[in-house]
Amino acid sequence: MRLKKEGFRIYEYILFAGAALYVFALCVCAGSVNIPVKDTVTLIWNSVFGIPLPQSVGSPAIILSVRLPRVICVALTGAALSLCGGAMQGLLRNPLADGYTLGVSSGASLGAAVAIAFGVTIPSVPFAGTMTLATLFAFASLVLILSLAYKLDRSLSTNTIILLGVIYSMFVSGLLSLIITFASDKVKQITFWTMGSLSGSGYEDAFVLLIALAVFGSVIILHARELNAFAVGEDNARHIGVNVKRVKLVILISVSVLIGVCVSVGGAIGFVGLVTPHMTRMITGPNHKRLLPASLFGGATFLMLADLAARILLDPLELPIGVISSLVGAVLFVYIFYASRRKSHA
């Protein structure tokens, strides 16, 4: 009998990366001004290597300083949020868990709003203040929600977690309104965090996202086997020798940092972490060794497409990206909830 290799195979990486790259190129080229692929490639190639541009290429500013950084940020945010969603769905063995449904993103937005309203900054590092507070609030929210959930219902059933997430989000939006009332001069800036948009992001945002994803994304992916054990059952994980407490803490910290960074760059973007791991699981199966890497590419692709739709659907009017991802996500949420309830009653 041959035992099958568990991990992600090379050709699968190539396939997923290829699809993501294709969508990436599409998103950079298409928009309110369509720019031919050939021109785009020449433009990026030449500016990376410092070769002067040929006359025929028009509108270099649109590509280089607007679209390219934005699409990179969108892709990285999508990848990071999907990875977080996949990790939490495994850790809590709950297919509906995700930073948004649990209220972690709301918590992170609250942190960012506090930083803006009270002018919390770290000198010489541009947006470190909002980022740090967003991360801390994300972690505090996760710990609060989970300790409440464990108190109420040790089996962490879907209903308990979702109910707590909804209530916590309401609570946070109350606090957010309170802050907005007192910091009326910063209303516009704060409202941005609650809407979710990546339209103004630049290369330094992309850089921070990339670093966070490289460090904490790797930590999460390296715990794929432990997440498999958690996804089968937390008691089972303990009995087969997983250091349950430590793994939980490591995953929760990594997820908090990633969500905190994503929220401080692009605001709370809903349901990405729910939609993509779920769709990816249909292709790769539930094994996190395959699910997590595939979710990275899947999340990037999904959010880039959502962003493209947000840009061109009502052109010249631009929709916030959260509108598209939430519309798709909410429908899928109901579907998963329905499917999982039907299964548990069968």
Binding site: N228, V232, N287
Partner: peptide, 19 residues
């Protein structure tokens, strides 16, 4: 045992080797 995800039998058995 209530497993919420469609792991294969072999994947669940293999978890026994984690230690």
């Amino acid at each position: 045992h209530a497993v919420n995800y469609p792991f294969t039998v072999e994947e669940v058995v293999r978890l026994g080797r984690y230690a």
